[in-house]
Design a protein around this nucleic acid. Structure first.
Lengths: 234, 234
DNA sequence: ACCTGAACACCGTTCAAGT
DNA sequence: ACCTGAACACCGTTCAAGT
């Protein structure tokens, strides 16, 4: 019972808020958000569960911290992007930042769920949105329009969208589509016809909830184009 | 311990899946999703917790069922809408349906969270989206564009969006804005200036996560206008 | 200052048993 | 067929105690 440490080498380094949070990210990366329990995290850090409470107020605070770590990653990623000057091509500048942010979400597929779940303020998030705001301002947006724009983009600004239905994780949904097709046909004719016509090409490039890159970019461009339109007719 | 029933009159009506689900909605309406536990729900129905398992496989299945009840409400609401024919004015037709759906979300503020949380298929959801699909088709959308449109709208089609930061529920956030203003001023100049300029008018008409009607309609119209543009440019 | 053991209240759930 | 009592494994968390 004693010799089975998951992280042996740093076991003697004293705990710290930072180590706790990064440990939590590691646990979630490995086993998903469900496996991120206080007891589990403690074990991964080679420590008792109650020790965590010295560095973090409670589980909510832990999750807030984890969300901030992830958005911090997003921020760092966005900062490295080399794009056009917002004054010349704000859409491309913003697009590149957001697609960079998306890369972080693809690395941590549980993160979208976590981020949407947090309701408390997040400094890193503020900084990230400030970066977008700067782009809009330098592109000539009024604060009023830029504010609407932030709300309109929502979580898409961070590189993800929450899909409403999807092939259940693990099950390859073929059975459902094949079997229920006739029963659906008369009740949901348009859907059936659509599914017949659509060739859902790249099923492997999906983020958390069946949100693949093509759909993400379509929605993103739709919004960016629309915002540019609003700016011009301003 | 025996005489404190919350729902006394129907206590003798035998349980049923339907009664369980509607009971769950009632519990969530009253105390939020956190209070919807098996034991809690059982008590509200005047029954032991284990009895629920006869009508519902487990808690996940219960929550799936609750989501379906809510989307069923949305569907019913949307069906009563009297709008223009899609062939003549699809945007208004769809807009009215979606704003009707939003009314349901305003009645059950925990529902957006629940719905975004469910990943399994939901027949009611399928029917609702089928209704939107019909509108697009009758308006001349290709299936390909209509499919993109469904993804682009996402949960907005159901009348809600998930806001990323908001004044924490219960706390009136004034303290934060006032106190940290100077510290933010040099790090987040655009945000500070924006907040100074924006008059956040109607703070009481907010859904779940600081998503007020104005912002919702702005984002919705942005998307609908953009889709119409895409339809015209083929 | 930092970590821990024992204990508490609360989950979802199983299973054998009641009517 | 429908409901229940007792029990289990697992949570987050408190609190007094250790070093």
């Amino acid at each position: 019972m004693t010799a089975q440490r998951e992280t042996e080498p740093q076991s003697r380094i004293p705990l710290s808020r930072d180590r706790v949070l990064r440990g939590a990210v590691a646990v979630a990366d490995e086993g998903g958000l469900d496996t991120l329990t206080m007891r589990n995290l403690a074990e991964a850090l080679g420590v008792e569960a109650m020790s965590l409470y010295y560095h973090v107020a409670n589980k909510e605070a832990l999750l807030d911290g984890v969300a901030e770590v992830i958005v911090g990653e997003v921020l760092a990623e966005a900062e490295t992007v080399e794009g056009p000057a917002p004054e010349e091509d704000w859409k491309t500048a913003m697009r590149l930042r957001i697609l960079a942010a998306r890369q972080v979400m693809l690395r941590h597929r549980w993160a979208p769920y976590l981020i949407e779940t947090r309701t408390t303020m997040n400094p890193a998030l503020l900084h990230y949105y400030h970066g977008l705001l700067e782009i809009w301002r330098r592109a000539g947006f009024s604060y009023d329009l830029a504010h609407h724009a932030m709300h309109a983009l929502g979580s898409r600004a961070l590189g993800f969208t929450q899909e409403l239905f999807e092939p259940a994780p693990g099950s390859d949904d073929e059975s459902v589509t094949d079997e229920m097709f006739e029963k659906m046909a008369d009740q949901l004719p348009y859907l059936v016809e659509m599914l017949g016509e659509i060739s859902h090409d790249d099923p492997e490039t999906t983020i958390g909830w069946c949100d693949d890159q093509t759909e993400f970019e379509f929605g993103l461009d739709l919004l960016l184009d629309g915002l540019e339109q609003r700016r011009l007719t301003g």
